[in-house]
Design a protein around this nucleic acid. Structure first.
Lengths: 161, 161
DNA sequence: TATTGTTATACTCTATAACTATA
DNA sequence: TATAGTTATAGAGTATAACAATA
């Protein structure tokens, strides 16, 4: 993934003007949990994208594939609400996943408006490879924050989520 | 902020096809800390943006204003590296902040290439209002996840960050 | 040669609105 | 009237590349 220096090391080498060498202060940012959350979340997405690059899968696509796999036959509306993906965005994502022959849409007998979503055989196979890469990412994530902190965060956020 | 239903309630009402009413499974997503992190981070940004709407300030702008306030006179390069904002993006953000008379750029005597960044008087005044709204957001955040969890997350992530 | 700041392009994600076909 | 899906547009954020001025 793209190399990211820690706040401290970045600040240390951030010279180039009159105040060169003095570490930058976070200021009030230090009181905002959202700031730290955002930084970690960016790290995660960057590592995920880099790790999954061989399969050309983005985080949002990955989550859609997993939820279809776990809930075959459900509608776009159901998947979208579950993951908080706008239906407009999901429609275009599914076109792309259909183009790659990973997802199939079948018409739903009970309601002609809705499509039932399934993984194709090819999609299942691809998801196997994708899952192995995703596990590698998760391991790297745990190593990055420390296994203990990773577990603590998981417990805190999963119980909440 | 924009109303977001919980995973559970969204799943409950996600009907409309043959499997209507059955809650959707997270599948392997349940094993990814990044998924829960992302969901919480989205909540935070949406609440932040909604709370700060009266001042028309986005999270990235807010972080830049705070870091300039805490480190007056530093260069764009220093601020950008500190916050991991691309210099190209920061240049355009600063144009906008300059247009609103919140930030001033002065040339740096020691290095004619770099600009020293400062808040204007108007900028300080605006930041005062912004900070009060941001505190309201942070309180809402703590209420959302629970005060105890908010503190635990802050401790975990700040120590790490 | 490398760095600071700028402009430009392209892609992703988010947020809307408008449209169709069904219900 | 409301819902499922589609198409289109606009605004952010991210990632590059190329450039001028300066170091």
């Amino acid at each position: 993934m793209k190399r990211r220096r820690s706040i401290r090391s970045a600040a240390k080498s951030a010279g180039g003007n009159g105040a060169a060498g003095k570490a930058l202060a976070l200021g009030q940012l230090d009181r905002h949990l959202g700031y730290f959350l955002r930084r970690l979340q960016l790290w995660v997405f960057q590592d995920f994208i880099a790790t999954l690059r061989p399969m050309r899968v983005r985080p949002a696509q990955y989550s859609v594939l997993l939820v279809i796999a776990a809930n075959p036959g459900r509608s776009q509306a159901a998947i979208g609400q579950m993951l908080d993906v706008e239906r407009a965005r999901l429609a275009r994502m599914l076109h792309e996943l259909e183009r790659r022959r990973w997802v199939a849409r079948r018409s739903n007998g009970a309601d002609a408006r809705s499509h039932s979503l399934y993984l194709t055989g090819e999609g299942e196979k691809a998801l196997g490879k994708i899952t192995r890469l995703a596990e590698r990412h998760e391991a790297r994530f745990a190593a990055h924050v420390g296994g203990r902190r990773h577990a603590q965060l998981m417990a805190l956020l999963r119980e909440f989520g």
